[in-house]
């Protein structure tokens, strides 16, 4: 990798570095599917927060295929997979005292979910 010079910076900023992967992988889930977030507790890196684990939600949309942080962070490969926006009701996450109408959307990797 050659030395990065100031002249290169504007293009590097404008281009960024997408974690999207150009791979035609068959999605496991589709919009409207009911899922449960897995109850996993890896001691390594994950983007599945504790407050989502074991909760039931609905697939809202498929964002396409991205690098899987859990393996990438541990230098174990990109393991590309679909990422979905998943809707959980506030009551599913926080119990009956939460406002009935409110909801939370979170982007979940395929490996974090199972169909219910």
């Amino acid at each position: 990798m050659p030395t990065i010079t100031p002249e290169q910076i504007p293009d590097l900023v404008r281009k960024g570095a997408s974690c999207r992967v150009d791979a035609a992988l068959e999605p496991l889930f589709k919009t409207g599917d009911k899922i449960r977030a897995l109850n996993i507790n890896p001691a390594t890196h994950t983007r599945l927060p504790r407050y989502i684990r074991g909760k039931e939600g609905v697939i809202d949309r498929d964002h396409g295929v991205f690098v899987f942080p859990d393996t990438q962070a541990e230098m174990k490969g990109a393991k590309p997979q679909h990422v979905y926006s998943v809707r959980f009701t506030a009551q599913e996450l926080w119990g009956a005292d939460a406002p009935q109408k409110d909801s939370l959307y979170i982007d979940l990797f395929e490996d974090y979910m199972e169909k219910t």
Binding site: M1, I4, L12, V13, A17, C19, T44, H45, V67, P69, Q72, A73, E74, M75
Partner: peptide
């Protein structure tokens, strides 16, 4: 942070892990 990611020294996921 920006320059080392642009150099592909490591991934953004490694940086996040090493904060955690």
């Amino acid at each position: 942070y920006f320059a080392t990611l642009a150099s592909d020294i490591y991934s953004i996921d490694e940086l996040r892990k090493n904060i955690e």
